[in-house]
Structures are given as structure tokens and as C-alpha cells.
């Protein structure tokens, strides 16, 4: 089993910072003055009830949704002020694993993995692209699926391929949207292992959206609890377990 050591206070460099973020859908105020920091090399799990705005948060971070107010600093750049080209450039450094995997159904696994490379690594030769695809597939333990279609893969395999596609550009920050939802406990454990492996190999800093307590306990260096649109509490898994507030206790019982 792979384990990583949480960074110490002294070497904490903030790679992502969310300040006073507001996002609503009509009268539904999902995020209200939300604040968060992600430190280099850590896995931060954002925990919250379904519909509490966890996925909205990371979609705002990657620029898929636009908040009404607030600031999102990603690798020292304010996402909200970026134009299309700058946003695309920023996205090469930030990976996003979708809850539904979002593999392109009409493409083979190889074509799925080549897609971001062809977009951002136009200077790469055919053999270099092939090597990177195979390396990514080996890292997720599925090199034999290279010429298969996504429809031929199981849920767990699709999740791993989606992770391989996200990691192929070697991003510095990873955003995982409920990576273990809908998977059986064994496959969930495999995905949790992969998240830790990615952290170790690529030295990524990650925000993991989850309400799967197994995933939280296993992958988190730090946990932030999203309640009523705000970051209600944050700390290590052990710290939050001992938290006196009933809103926090409810998750850990």
C-alpha cells in the first residue's frame, strides 16, 4: 500500500486559493463566502452532503462555471480574470477527473488519451505520443485496453482510463469529482490507491470531492467540510472526528 507523508507547516506553499466565493442558481445560494487553500503536495478532501455545492466549487476552479463574486487563485493566476487562451493554458496544469468519467464514446482508449496531447503537445512526434499513452496506461495498470472502446470497459476500468487521460499532461493540480461514487468497495479501494500513487509519482496537489468516508479516510491529508455554502471546518481526518459540532459529527459516525 502506498502512503504519503503530509507536508509540514514550514514547507507549505499555497498552490490554489479560493476567497469569498459566491455562486447561486436562481434563489439557491450554493456557495456563500466560501474560502479554501490548497497546499503543494497535499490531498485535500472537500466533504459535504449531496447538492451542497462541492462539484460546483471545482467547476468554478477549472472555469466551467462562473461565480458571481470572489477570487480563485490557481498557481498564482486569478481564474476569473483569464481570457480563453490563458484559461486553456492554465488548464494544462490542472487536471479534472469527472464523476461520469467523460470518456469520448466514439474514440478508442488510445484516441481518448491522445486527444489532450494532440491539443497541447503538437510538437510531439508519433512515437513520443505513443510512449506517453502507454506510460499513462501502465501507470493505471491497463496497457492491454489501448485499442478497446470505452463501452467495452467496466466502471472501474473507465475510471482508471479517465484518470490516465487526465494525468497524461502531468498536471500540477488534480481535481477529483467524486472518484469512487458508484463503484464497489474493492474497485473504490483500487481508485483510492491510484489517487495516492498519482500524488506520489507526479507530486500533485489535489482537491478530492467526496462523501465516501472510506475515500476520505484513505486519501485525505486534510479535510474541509462544506456546510451551507461555507467551509464549516477543516483539519485532519482525526481532528474532525473529534470535532464537537453535530454537523461535523454526523459525517464521522
Amino acid at each position: 500500500m502506498l502512503m504519503t507523508t503530509p507536508p509540514t507547516i514550514s514547507d507549505r506553499e499555497v498552490v490554489l486559493e479560493v476567497r469569498h466565493l459566491y455562486k447561486s442558481f436562481g434563489d439557491n445560494h450554493v456557495l456563500k463566502d466560501f474560502n479554501l487553500e490548497l497546499y503543494r503536495g497535499e490531498n485535500l478532501v472537500v466533504l459535504g452532503k449531496s447538492g451542497s455545492g462541492k462539484s460546483v466549487l471545482i467547476k468554478c476552479i477549472i472555469g466551467l462555471m462562473h461565480p458571481e463574486q470572489g477570487e480563485i487563485q490557481v498557481l498564482a493566476k486569478n481564474v476569473i480574470g483569464l481570457n480563453k487562451e490563458q484559461l486553456d493554458q492554465m488548464r494544462t496544469r490542472v487536471g479534472f477527473l469527472f464523476q461520469s468519467n467523460a470518456l469520448y464514446d466514439s474514440m478508442t482508449v488510445r484516441e481518448n488519451l491522445e486527444f489532450p496531447l494532440r491539443r497541447h503537445g503538437r510538437d510531439k512526434s508519433h512515437s513520443e505520443v505513443n510512449d506517453l499513452v502507454m506510460e499513462a496506461l501502465v501507470n493505471v495498470g491497463l496497457p492491454h485496453t489501448v485499442d478497446m472502446m470505452p463501452s467495452e470497459l467496466s466502471g472501474g476500468m473507465r475510471k482508471r482510463i479517465a484518470l490516465a487521460r487526465t494525468m497524461i499532461l502531468k498536471p500540477e493540480i488534480m481535481l477529483y469529482d467524486e472518484p469512487t461514487t458508484g463503484l464497489d468497495p474493492i474497485t473504490s479501494r483500487e481508485i483510492n490507491d491510484l489517487i495516492l500513487k498519482v500524488q506520489e509519482i507526479y507530486k500533485t496537489s489535489s482537491i478530492i470531492i467526496s462523501h465516501d468516508m472510506g475515500c476520505v479516510k484513505y486519501t485525505a491529508n486534510r479535510v474541509a467540510l462544506l456546510v451551507d455554502g461555507r467551509c464549516f471546518a477543516s483539519g485532519s481526518y482525526a481532528d474532525l472526528q473529534k470535532h464537537p459540532d453535530s454537523a461535523v459529527k454526523g459525517f464521522f459516525q
Binding site: K59, I62, L64, K84, D88, Q89, R91, T92, F96, F98, Q99, S100, N101, A102, L103, Y104, D105, F115, P116, R119, H120
Partner: peptide, 14 residues
């Protein structure tokens, strides 16, 4: 509905 269009956007594709 399967977020493939979002994935494309995140990959730096219009």
C-alpha cells in the same frame, strides 16, 4: 449529459 463536452473544454479544445 455525460460531461464529454465539458471534458473537451477542460482539455483546451473549443
Amino acid at each position: 449529459v455525460t460531461e464529454q463536452i465539458d471534458a473537451m473544454e477542460v482539455s483546451g479544445t473549443n
